[in-house]
């Protein structure tokens, strides 16, 4: 009885994971610029992989395997935002063009190429020579 329920729940989790993974790949293929693609790939992809790993943890039903699957998911959850941030920063500074219908680029003109600093909110007090 319980095994049948676990099999069905694991199957549903696998289907949901495959769906989100497909959505992320579709977003990567269809969205108009890099930053939107990054939005699709990082979030939906992590969710899809996490659902599949959760299905594996349920299917085996052993503590050791569940911890292993949880560690993989935790690792993905920690590294995906870091990788996306590093890549987005590099892409912006490398001058990747935004979508031509982008309304707002708040960093434009506030970034000093020579010192790697920006003067937005929270950038610290201005240099003494400015006063």
């Amino acid at each position: 009885m319980l095994e049948g329920v676990i099999e069905i729940v694991a199957g549903v989790l696998i289907l949901a994971g495959a769906f989100f993974v497909l959505v992320s790949a579709l977003g990567l293929l269809r969205l108009p610029d890099l930053f939107m693609r990054m939005h699709a790939a990082t979030k939906a992809g992590t969710l899809g992989a996490g659902l599949v790993l959760f299905a594996a943890a349920l299917f085996f039903g052993e503590l050791a395997v569940s911890i292993k699957a949880a560690v993989v998911f935790l690792f993905l959850l920690l590294t995906a935002p870091v990788a996306a941030h590093v890549l987005g920063r590099a892409a912006y500074y490398a001058g990747v063009t935004l979508w031509d219908r982008t309304m707002l680029d708040e960093l434009r003109g506030k970034y000093d190429e020579s010192t790697d600093e920006h003067d937005g909110p929270g950038a610290g007090s201005p240099a003494p020579s400015d006063r």
């Binding site: 994971g17 992320s24 693609r37 790939a41 790993l53 699957a69 993905l76 590099a90």
Partner: peptide
């Protein structure tokens, strides 16, 4: 652009993890 390719390779790594699962 180059960052597009890097992002796609990153997603392929993530997809491979789910394939292994």
């Amino acid at each position: 652009s180059m960052p597009d390719r890097v992002l796609a390779l990153d997603l392929i790594g993530l997809l491979s993890v789910s394939l292994i699962g």
